[in-house]
Amino acid sequence: MARHVMLNNVAHHDLRVITRYGAEFGDNIGTVLTFPTEYGDVQREYPIFFRKDAQSGEFQSIALLGLQPDENLFLEDGAWQAAYIPGIVARGPFLIGFQNQDVNGELRREPVIHVDLDNPRISRSEGEPVFLPQGGNTRYLERIGNILQGIHQGLAVSKAMFEAFTAHELIEPVNVEVKFNAEEQFDLRGLYTISEEKLRRLDGDALYRLNSAGFLQGAFLVIASLNNMKKLIDMKHRQRRKLAGVA
């Protein structure tokens, strides 16, 4: 059960965060949320798909990590085997919260860092320190702040991007089917992607508006990311051989 509190350097002066990865930290997941603000990094490592949120019905971006809900093919020996880790994972036990603050005489809801004290990564004896002995932020916390800012911005960009993609009817459903043999096959449903055909058919004005908003590049990055499906399947092959004791 989560226990979110606002981070501060008095109550949490000795707080540390375990930064290795593994099933014990909930990292054995087949998909993870991603955002347009990190597409450039994500598409180099993972296939990017869309799915609909179960509650709101709105589209979300996801990076595919495995072929099953509880399978993360990028996990190995406590490490994440990729050059880029999606922000929603890299943020660890931290999240954005909001607090009313007086800014030049005006009351505003400003984003502040919160921490989940019940997160299994939280420690007082091992891991990366959050604060310096004198109370200042460590480099680790500065990096977390940048990651959280990217997520915060990405949420807003994502909503506008999907509205634009929907208006131009660019989103289409896709079934991902991977078959190793008659007994072992995977069928991933409920996923969506960009229709290359409809993207090619857009007129100059539509392309200009998408490009001006920065969404055209996002569409191309999503399409390009699908080349990583071969990489993911190769990783699954290696995992199967390892489990079978085959070099």
Rank of each mutant, 00 (worst) to 15 (best):
H237A: 09
D14W: 05
G245Q: 08
D14P: 05
I144V: 10
D234G: 07
L67M: 00
M161H: 10
E184P: 02
D187S: 15
I233V: 15
I223S: 03
V17Y: 11
Q149P: 01
E24C: 10
L117H: 12
F215E: 00
A54S: 13
R121A: 00
G245N: 04
V103G: 06
G204A: 15
D116M: 07
E163W: 09
L148G: 04
T31D: 03
D27T: 09
L67G: 10
F220R: 11
Y192A: 01
E128N: 06
A54W: 07
A160V: 10
T193G: 09
T166C: 04
V112P: 05
D102H: 14
D118M: 09
A206H: 07
E183C: 12
F131N: 04
M161A: 14
V176S: 08
V157C: 06
L117D: 07
L33S: 11
S61T: 07
E45N: 14
E142N: 12
D70V: 07
D203T: 03
P173D: 07
R201M: 05
L243F: 09
L67D: 03
G57K: 06
S195P: 06
L15K: 09
E45D: 14
G97H: 13
R108G: 04
V103K: 15
V10A: 08
R51V: 00
N9Y: 10
G145V: 02
G150A: 11
E163F: 07
L148H: 05
R20K: 08
L155N: 12
P93D: 02
F50N: 02
A23Q: 11
A11W: 12
I29S: 06
E172P: 01
A23V: 09
G218E: 08
L64H: 08
I147N: 05
D203A: 11
G214L: 07
E71V: 01
D70N: 14
N175G: 12
N227G: 13
E71R: 04
H237Q: 15
N100E: 14
K230G: 14
D14C: 06
V32M: 04
S158W: 02
R91Q: 04
E163Y: 10
L188E: 01
N181K: 08
L170D: 01
R139I: 02
N181A: 05
G204F: 12
P133W: 12
P69R: 12
N8F: 09
G97V: 02
S212K: 15
R51M: 06
A79C: 05
Q185C: 06
V89F: 11
G204L: 11
T37C: 04
S123M: 02
L232E: 03
E76G: 08
V32C: 11
R44Q: 10
L155K: 13
I18Y: 06
G66F: 09
G66N: 08
F59M: 03
R91T: 00
N104E: 14
V5L: 07
I122V: 11
K179F: 07
F94E: 02
Y46R: 00
Q81L: 12
T37V: 06
G204H: 11
R139W: 05
V157A: 15
N228I: 01
R139C: 00
L107V: 14
S212H: 13
R124N: 13
